[in-house]
């Protein structure tokens, strides 16, 4: 099996492009070229067993696409996903793939859309058990479903109900119970709390942390909320327009962010402690992903951009906070260190 310390999941040069052109006929008539959206454009990272890696970024940065690539909802355009050293793309048979997929599960963002409205909760939770033929004995399945419902803070009696009888937070618990029912080791969580109220978000985040400790789960956590990411993550990757711009241990990243985009994101976090810290709202918006800027994609919004940034795309390089960042200015030492939010 895996060698100790070796990455549990490794992503190498992963890319996914979408063809968003109009139909052929329209293109010919209107004389337009093909439009390719590079949702994920070559990213590398690794996740260690038992840790939580978060990907954070604004809408359209490709973080959700990465999540869907890893669980196999999309096929990569380029690159590899290695699970304990096995290339997911190299699996020859459906059976082999299923055996691996069983160990992955996913939790979705919208608790109102992620449960089939016409199914009873017990059937929803039992679906992975039945699909992977982990058991065919109805009483045994029922016992497992009851146990799962209890584990996520619901009661076994809830199994008889339909999803619409539950609040958003309870539905997300059902989603988690379903994800856990095939005894997975690895959960991909795509904005699991973004649709929830804050007090419910706290319940779900606590539950996820408890489950991780009890079951030794590994999480890939996708979010746009930096405070949530800080709370749940061991390591954090920041994405911008389909690329990773910075990846570091959570504390290091928040205390000593390197990439100007990371700094900008941290600066935009509302100040709940009311310290009166002056904020400089950064100008500009994310450019059209169909036509990303040349060089570093962040250069039009970056106060430190120079000619090199406008022509040459930066690669990820080791930086002062112990992580990696893709920025010419950081590499050349043009950026002053910016001591940051997280107090020691």
């Amino acid at each position: 099996m895996s060698t100790p310390g070796a990455p549990y999941i490794e992503v190498r040069g992963l890319a996914r492009h979408f063809d968003v052109s109009k139909p052929l006929l329209n293109r010919v008539i209107e004389g337009q070229p093909r439009l390719i959206l590079k949702a994920v454009d070559g990213i590398d990272f690794a996740i260690r067993k038992g840790e939580t890696l978060s990907l954070v970024g604004e809408s359209g940065c490709g973080k959700s696409t990465v999540a869907r690539l890893i669980v196999g909802l999309y096929k990569p355009t380029r690159g590899q996903i290695l699970f304990e050293g096995t290339d997911m793309g190299s699996l020859a048979t459906r059976a082999e793939e299923r055996a691996l997929r069983k160990r992955f599960q996913m939790i979705f963002q919208d608790p109102y859309a992620s449960l089939n409205p016409r199914w009873r909760v017990a059937d929803i939770v039992a679906e992975p058990i039945r699909a992977h033929r982990l058991s065919s004995d109805p009483t045994e399945i029922r016992r497992r479903v009851d146990e799962l419902l209890r584990q996520v803070g619901l009661s076994p009696a809830d199994g008889e109900k339909f999803p619409h009888e539950f609040s958003g937070g309870q539905r997300q618990r059902i989603s988690i119970a379903r994800a856990l029912s095939s005894n997975p080791e690895f959960l991909v969580c795509d904005e699991p709390t973004s649709a929830l109220d804050v007090s419910v978000q706290a319940q779900i985040l606590n539950l996820m942390k408890d489950l991780q400790r009890e079951l030794g789960l590994t999480y890939l956590f996708i979010s746009h909320n930096l405070a949530v990411v800080f709370h749940i993550s061991d390591r954090v990757g920041v994405m911008y327009l389909g690329r990773l711009v910075e990846l570091a241990d959570a504390r290091a990243l928040f205390e000593n962010p390197q990439h100007p985009y990371t700094r900008m994101l941290l600066d935009a976090i509302p100040d709940l402690d009311m310290t009166g810290r002056a904020r400089t709202p950064v100008a500009g918006e994310v450019p059209n992903p169909l036509d990303p800027p040349k060089g570093c994609a962040f250069n039009p919004r970056c106060p430190f951009a120079n000619d090199r940034c406008r022509t040459e795309r930066p690669e990820l390089r080791p930086v002062a906070n112990g992580g990696v960042a893709a920025c010419h200015a950081v590499e050349e030492g043009r950026l002053a260190a910016a001591p940051r939010l997280a107090p020691a």
Binding site: G169, A202, Q203, L205, F230, L272
Partner: peptide, 23 residues
């Protein structure tokens, strides 16, 4: 309870304070 349940950057408690139940 609401204020305590909001995760904050820099606060490293293992668990968030939570209000049990729902509105």
């Amino acid at each position: 309870g609401l204020m305590a349940s909001i995760p904050k950057v820099g606060r490293t408690d293992a668990r968030l304070a939570q209000i049990d139940g729902a509105m």
